[in-house]
């Protein structure tokens, strides 16, 4: 466990140190109108949706799966809520409907994977492609702006800390609690490590797999609400674009293997923080923000290579 988190922790610390060197005031916080501001707060707030989605993704990946559709699901959640509010509905009901719909989409993914036995990467590719279309169908291709203070609170509001941070930390706490206090964590890992042994031990892997896809979709839904609430608008085209990739990266950087099995929520938290801090660092160091991607690529490869056992067999085994 400790070993697995060593590299992510070092990477994060290195990034933070770099930031302090460049901007000595990096860790300073200030309280203004009862709201806490500062670079660290910004990182946390901007990273909140990625963290949320990565949490759901962690459990999916632990069962040897992957969910490519989360970005599209996030866009659908924003689209549904904003369309509902724009037509004069209550924001709370709108958000409720959106999350319910997300749960249904999760059921759909889970059905394809656990019942029909389709490879997760293809099964969720369907919704990844069609999902954006559905979101645009809901918004009729428009960017729908809403003027609802209640809704705005979700992504942009403060309760001393930004509410988005509180929500994602709450979900993190909830997942940690649920997976540790119930047997969900054990059964997820068991299915991911050894599916056939789990079957013989009587584990209902179908239910477990179904559960994690629904959970991932609901997490994506909440993240979608945050993203759209932050700008008080639903943009079906670009909301949550590529967030599934960031989430998968956060999970992988956090030491959970794409091959499934043991997972680490702490690792995922670290992974999400690394990705967000990296973005901020590039900005504070004075490099054009668009180039972040290059650094992201380097970090991914570096972390993966640190964790990957070199395939010795390939070298000394069968001559090529």
């Amino acid at each position: 466990m400790k070993n697995r988190l060593l590299w992510p922790v070092l990477a994060l610390v290195a990034l933070l140190v770099l930031n302090v060197v460049v901007t000595p005031s990096f860790f300073s916080l200030r309280l203004q109108d009862g709201h806490l501001y500062g670079s660290v707060i910004d990182i946390l707030r901007n990273g909140a949706p990625t963290l949320l989605i990565a949490l759901g993704m962690t459990l999916v990946i632990a069962t040897r799966g992957i969910d490519l559709s989360v970005g599209a699901v996030a866009a659908i959640a924003g689209a549904v809520t904003c369309t509902y509010i724009a037509s004069g509905g209550d924001p709370w009901i709108g958000m409720g409907i959106a999350l319910l719909l997300c749960a249904v989409l999760g059921l759909w993914n889970g059905f394809l994977v656990s019942v029909l036995g389709i490879q997760p990467i293809i099964a969720t590719l369907v919704l990844m492609t069609a999902g954006r279309g559905i979101a645009m169908l809901i918004t009729e291709g428009q960017i729908i702006t809403v003027d609802s203070p209640t809704y705005r609170e979700v992504g942009a509001g403060f309760l001393v800390l930004p509410i988005a941070i509180l929500i994602s930390l709450a979900v993190l706490g909830l997942v940690a609690l649920v997976t540790r206090r119930t047997a969900l964590g054990l059964l997820i890992e068991s299915v991911g490590v050894n599916p056939s042994a789990s079957r013989l031990a009587g584990v209902k892997s179908r239910t477990i797999i179904w559960t994690v896809y629904v959970f991932a979709a609901v997490c994506a839904g909440i993240a979608g609400l945050m993203i759209s609430s932050n700008v008080s608008a639903a943009d079906a085209n670009s909301a949550g674009l590529w967030i599934e990739m960031d989430a998968i990266l956060a999970v992988v950087i956090g030491g959970t293997s794409l091959a499934g099995g043991r997972y680490s929520l702490t690792g995922t938290l670290l992974g999400a923080l690394i990705i967000q801090t990296l973005t901020t660092t590039v900005y504070t160091v004075g490099i054009a923000p668009e180039i972040t991607l290059v650094f992201k690529a380097i970090v991914v490869i570096a972390v993966c290579l640190m964790q990957a056992p070199i395939r010795i067999r390939v070298r000394q085994g069968v001559p090529a």
Binding site: I66, L258, E290, T292, L293, I298, V300, L305, A308, P309
Partner: peptide, 22 residues
């Protein structure tokens, strides 16, 4: 050589290429 999943490696490649554009 390192047995990393193609998904992750080409994802990194995707970021790298897009970043180099910028």
């Amino acid at each position: 050589r390192f047995g990393v999943q193609p998904f992750i490696v080409t994802l990194a490649g995707m970021f790298l290429a897009r970043g180099l554009c910028f």
